[in-house]
Write a protein that binds this DNA or RNA. Structure first.
Lengths: 344, 344
DNA sequence: ACAATTAATGCAAGCGGTTGCACAACTGTC
DNA sequence: GACAGTTGTGCAACCGCTTGCATTAATTGT
């Protein structure tokens, strides 16, 4: 069937171990032999079987990437970046979609554990204890969650939420609604915590609506609630919900941003293409994907790395937030960016 | 480190082969022994190493999925459906992103070949001959491309393009532009072929603009060309380009659909959320993902399956196509769907 | 009661590689 | 010219698991 190391050995008249070394420790084999072996391998179309190699070396050169929902536009850029970064290091990526189901998450990690060098858990919904336990079975890097002792890459959404709320209170909004995300989301809790504190500091009321599914439907379906609550501004758990909400508000006859200002989180590609264009907290998803892979691969070296990498977020002001009910400032040009790094 | 079949054998006092059979051929082992072994396995947390098993059985229970660009919103629903379907059959999915690069495509297929039971090539850019050659090294199913002898799942975009052009000519458009897709895209050629024929039959001029990158930038950057060509309607290679184009047209001061009607292809989620909502040819991407996986898994049974599955498309009429320059009909309600199956 | 099945298990080879060790052929040293 | 040190290669065990075959015990038929 497939050409193996033995075929190459036979063709080049050396022992299989020499062929093996030609590929995995070239400096140990005589240059002449080496080139002969390589020529034969080339000619036969030999490709090492990584699974077989992994059996003895323990390194699979595979990485597992687990996300709650591939179709959520937040994830594809992260997956893409991770895949690309992984391939740079000659690794391949298993992708699994858990449908926001914590049980499935555990199952998939376990199923993948044996055939990967590590797993990237993106915005996991399962419990901290379970994650800690799993991390004893397979190297884990968590994205968008902080757990002591587990290496993590987190977007600083707390900071982003603060920028967003400050932006709103500065424009005079006093009744703000927060559309929270799915149950079990660390990000959602962070946002809530930060938004609440910031609103209080800005002398605004913050009413929390949720938990909601993190989709445009989740936003759409609470438009009525937002209007009923009398909010003049909304911060949504993510852009998808924000966009759904805008759709719902417009349908209900409210104007955005004249009647209600809306801010999303993530800055997915879509946000630039809707009308009105969405004001949002940009999270560096691609960078997170790359960083997570790097962290996972470094993980092997200094055993039990435990670093937490915080990625700055920034507020991108577009058209879904208006001058607001307060004292008016002159109209903004498009895409004003408030970087998180310099926020007071 | 990890618990193996030997540990279980030792713990339950049987030979490793009995443990093996307990998992892979339970009917061959005595119910009592079986339950004892299972208990021990459970207690030790044993999980079979699939890579090791694959080494001898030849079945990896993995599938490779290769796409041109994960971040293109067309793909995530397909990937998600494929992953879900694969997992139903206890398979895992490798995802690779080739950045629209044919060379990378080949490389990745080869790299993955040994550790998968087959590969799904989605909208590949490489040559037919290369695909035929690769299909001799690893079972292949191609999505959105037709090659004799290679099993395939294709969206009937020709039909979709016909529906779209007919829709336009029926509304009196006589100057239509076609934004073609990337070089090497089978889909793009199909669309062009069908659109050209349909336009001719409808006594309309069709000017082809492209090739273009299949992104919103690709659409945005040709807005000027479209206006200069004097087209009153445009069919774009995909929704992303259509949305980019609309953005460009609006920016240039043209109204959509009053001045220019725009139709996309794919019906990505985004199309329902932009303003104006996009009229588009809906392609059943999720169904394609599922079907492709099924086809690949069936492939093993009846060797060298060569089936081509055609998936119907339909025209979803939203707000980016207006009554047109011809005789006006009453305004449409939202989301009129013209199914491809019954098209004349 | 005895041969012939049948059922349950053990044995060992092997899947495609890697790697510690042994060994032979050189190299340089005094 | 004997000795230690290099260098290049072969040998064989092993990674975790499957599977054809042999072995033994239990069951069946006559």
């Amino acid at each position: 069937m497939s050409v193996t190391i033995r075929d190459v050995a036979r063709a080049s008249g050396v022992h299989i171990s020499t062929v093996s070394r030609t590929f995995s420790a070239p400096h140990l084999v005589n240059p002449n032999t080496r080139s002969r072996v390589l020529a034969c391998a080339e000619q036969l179309g030999y490709r090492p079987n990584r699974a077989a190699r992994a059996l003895i070396t323990g390194r699979t050169y595979n990485i597992g990437l687990i996300v709650a929902d591939i179709a959520n536009p937040f994830f594809p850029p992260l997956i893409k970046a991770a895949e690309s970064q992984a391939r740079k290091h000659d690794h391949h990526i298993f992708v699994a979609d858990t449908n926001e189901d914590p049980v499935l998450e555990e199952e998939v990690v376990r199923a993948l554990a044996k055939q990967v060098d590590g797993v990237l858990l993106c915005s996991p919904r399962m419990s901290n204890t379970l994650i800690e336990q799993l991390s004893r079975e397979v190297p884990l890097v968590v994205v968008n969650r902080q757990i002591t002792g587990i290496p993590a890459v987190v977007m600083d959404v707390a900071q982003g939420a603060r920028l967003a709320i400050e932006h709103l209170t500065a424009r005079g909004h006093r009744d703000i609604a927060l559309l929270s995300g799915p149950r079990g989301s660390w990000t959602s809790r962070e946002i809530r915590r930060s938004a609440t504190a910031t609103a209080r500091a800005g002398h605004a009321e913050l009413s929390v609506i949720g938990p909601n599914p993190p989709t445009e439907i989740g936003g759409l379906s609470v438009a009525e609630d937002v209007l009923r609550a009398g909010a003049t501004a909304v911060l949504a758990y993510n852009d998808l919900m924000a966009i759904g909400l805008i759709e719902g508000l417009l349908t209900a006859g409210a104007r955005v941003p004249e009647d209600v200002s809306v801010i999303g989180i993530d800055d997915i590609m879509l946000s630039r293409l809707t009308r009105p264009k969405l004001t949002t907290v940009a999270t560096p998803t691609a960078a997170a994907g790359r960083a997570a892979v790097d962290m996972l691969l470094a993980h092997g070296d200094d055993r039990r790395s435990t670093a937490h990498l915080h990625l700055q977020t920034e507020l991108v002001i577009r058209d879904s937030t208006g001058p607001g009910p307060g004292p008016h400032s002159p109209a903004d040009p498009g895409d004003v960016i408030v970087p998180g790094g310099v926020a007071s």
